[in-house]
Design a protein around this nucleic acid. Structure first.
Lengths: 333, 333
DNA sequence: AGCGGTAACGTGAGCGCTCACGGGAGCGGT
DNA sequence: ACCGCTCCCGTGAGCGCTCACGTTACCGCT
């Protein structure tokens, strides 16, 4: 059955038309059930298409009816449960719109992120995700494509962002700790950038609002192992700490393991509060108390905003582009 | 700055050509650095393109140079860590090929799977993933698209599969348990289909190979909660069980929680062995002993096979399409 | 002066499809 | 017998780009 000619040429709409003894247009009508076609003719065309194994070219179709969109979702590491949740939410939101999501995992490597953005410009209609490159470089690589940054504020007009407001949540967390009698509270910040994180600022603000000295801080890689090492280091420097707030749940889970290894029982000897509200936090023992943010909204809003930027429907207002976070008390504090 | 004309017409290559005072072809040469162009001209074109915000149409480009491919990855639930790992592996493999992966999460709903396949046929060049629809329906919806099924054997020539061979691994698991003195070993199978799973068959075979009676079995939904309920039910019916093998790690983790709640200490009072080898298994306490399969290969092979089917390079042989599984002893058994 | 060669550009054609038309056949109404 | 209508179906044109060619200008060489 394989063609023995000069090469396996694609089956086009004209081939089907010829086989069915009709014109292109009639084939097109049959395939997109557009009406204006007799039932028997339609069936004949459909049979011919099936027999020839015809499949319309998405490029040709996309070229003329400009109505199919796809978003590029760029994330640093899909295996990180936080990004998984964001990605799942984005997929869901896109499905609702009939959009397609092309996912790129940069594996936390800047070089891959660059490569991805380079290729993405000619593959999707908008870019959404966690980007770490400087804005001007993103702008250069994406060439005018709408870009929605997640959890990162933008300077340029070109971009849009979905931001996290965890101030109230972190405040509640610290109040929760002080109410339980904790006075020496530390934090495990992340170690990616040199400057302290925004979450660290919220922590400081909440501490002083509760009348406590600015807590001691260690920096952790964004991994379970990173959390383990960091807690060990923090406790070595400040053995008097009775509670620790962490940059995110992954780090908190690492801290949980480290605490166990150090013989500190959680929450009796050491209270632990994470950030993110991952489902994973309910699977560990004890279950993680955390400042939970609405990851679903995070992903959904990002896609929504991308859609609005693209279709020209007025973009969301800045206050709609923020997702809140609330304390979710479980077992670790 | 917004155009006030009849509508926001797309900026085409001809617009850039006109602005730079050259021809289309020269613009094309500049953008794809093809050579045969003077440096000053090239710069002028690039400047014009930037100024106009020009971005080549992926459809037009794809139509003529037929060299960009994309795979559709269909999974039931991205939030299930197993599928996350498979997806991550697939993304990685695709990146190596320069392929694009369009991800669809059907949320475990057959109706969504149908809808996805319907739309996918005109959006990607090949489909890989976990599909639950009957083969003839998949064939009808995908219209001749290469399809690679993961962990599901195929009948039709149209399809290809990546299979899991866990026989040796499960055998090793049961031997491990018997060596530790266990005689009453149960299993938590999944509850999706009516017939017993292949893993169940491996379990039975391993049991009889070790000279044990076929173990008692309960069925569990593929979730932590499902595992909890199922273990509780299983132990209620068979209190004498000292070890349990589960369909997968998620169920095992549920079993872990149930065991704790029931006052059975793992592994002292109850040994637990899961299946899949999820990273998640190292985060729980005690760390999960499991029959680990190479999820990376699973996803990678699926993409590899899809690529071969598409490019005509001989498809992989059936023995290359199988990934093995090996016992990974951690703490729960 | 003549000739081949190369670098730098431009010109048709065509990828595979859909859209806006145009037109013939058939049928009922006056 | 004519008009008008609906139902089918076909024909050009064009979406935005790249490929395979032409074409021109300019260089060095005999």
């Amino acid at each position: 059955m394989a063609s023995s000619g000069t090469g396996p040429r694609r089956v086009t709409i004209d081939d089907v038309a010829e086989a069915a003894g009709v014109s292109r247009q009639t084939v097109s009508r049959a395939l997109n059930d557009k009406g204006e076609i007799g039932v028997s003719t339609k069936q004949r065309v459909l049979d011919a298409a099936l027999a020839l194994g015809y499949r319309p070219s998405r490029f040709a179709r996309g070229l003329v009816r400009q109505d199919t969109f796809s978003v590029g979702l760029v994330i640093p590491d899909l295996l990180n449960p936080f990004f998984t949740e964001v990605a799942a939410a984005a997929l869901d939101a896109a499905r609702g719109r009939g959009w397609h999501v092309v996912v790129y995992d940069t594996g936390d490597r800047v070089e891959e992120e660059r490569g991805t953005l380079e290729v993405i410009a000619s593959q999707v209609d908008a870019v959404v995700g966690y980007l770490s490159l400087p804005e001007d470089e993103i702008a250069r690589l994406t060439r005018g494509l709408p870009v929605v940054l997640i959890d990162r504020k933008h300077r340029s007009e070109r971009f849009s962002s979905i931001l996290i407001d965890g101030e109230a949540g972190v405040h509640a967390a610290i109040r929760h700790l002080t109410a339980a009698g904790h006075r020496h509270i530390g934090m495990l910040d992340h170690a990616e950038r040199s400057e302290p994180s925004v979450r660290h600022e919220w922590f400081d603000a909440a501490m002083s609002a509760c009348g406590l000295d600015s807590g001691s801080v260690a920096r952790a890689d964004q991994s379970v192992e990173g959390g383990e090492r960091a807690l060990q280091e923090l406790l070595a420097r400040h053995p008097d700490l009775t509670a620790v707030f962490t940059f995110n749940d992954i780090i908190a889970i690492g801290a949980l393991r480290a605490a166990r290894r150090l013989g500190r029982q959680v929450p009796r000897d050491l209270a632990l509060i994470g950030f993110d509200g991952l489902r994973l936090g309910t699977l560990v023992e004890p279950q993680l108390t955390t400042v939970a943010l609405d990851t679903r909204s995070l992903g959904a809003l990002a896609v929504e905003q991308a859609a609005r930027l693209l279709t020209g429907t007025g973009p969301l207002h800045s206050d709609q582009l923020t997702v809140g976070a609330e304390l979710r008390v479980r077992e670790s504090a």
